[in-house]
């Protein structure tokens, strides 16, 4: 697979205390472990099994993901932004790798 690249979308602006919509996407095959290759062998499972988002050190969402989540997992949720701070997004791969993205967010 090509390089893993997380994508994050936050609104352009928000006021302190607002709840904002956060969208995330990461390129990943989410290999379910149920498919077979052309030789008839089962392709081993390799998925993103967990995703977390924190803002200013406070947990927003913690998701346990199963193979039924589509390839290139997309997650959308809402976060409260009491003050300016940093978002930290983390994806956990079955293969032990952890992908992190951070995004500063300014409130007005």
């Amino acid at each position: 697979m090509t390089e893993v690249r997380p994508r994050i979308r936050l609104p352009r602006s928000a006021s302190a205390g607002d709840s904002i919509v956060v969208k995330t996407l990461i390129n990943h095959d989410m290999e379910s472990g149920q498919r077979r290759n052309s030789a008839g062998e089962t392709i081993p499972r390799q998925i993103i099994n967990r995703f977390t988002c924190e803002f200013g050190g406070v947990m927003v969402i913690d998701a346990a993901l199963e193979p039924a989540i589509s390839a290139n997992p997309y997650l959308e949720f809402e976060a409260v932004v009491p003050a300016s701070g940093e978002f930290v997004f983390t994806w956990y791969d079955d293969n032990g790798e952890v992908y992190t993205a951070t995004e500063a967010f300014e409130v007005s």
Binding site: E3, R5, R7, R9, K23, L25, N27, N72, Y74
Partner: peptide
């Protein structure tokens, strides 16, 4: 463009 998964490929192409 955010929800369009093809953009992941276009970004890889840009790299």
């Amino acid at each position: 463009d955010f929800e369009n998964p093809a953009m992941l490929a276009a970004e890889a192409g840009a790299d």
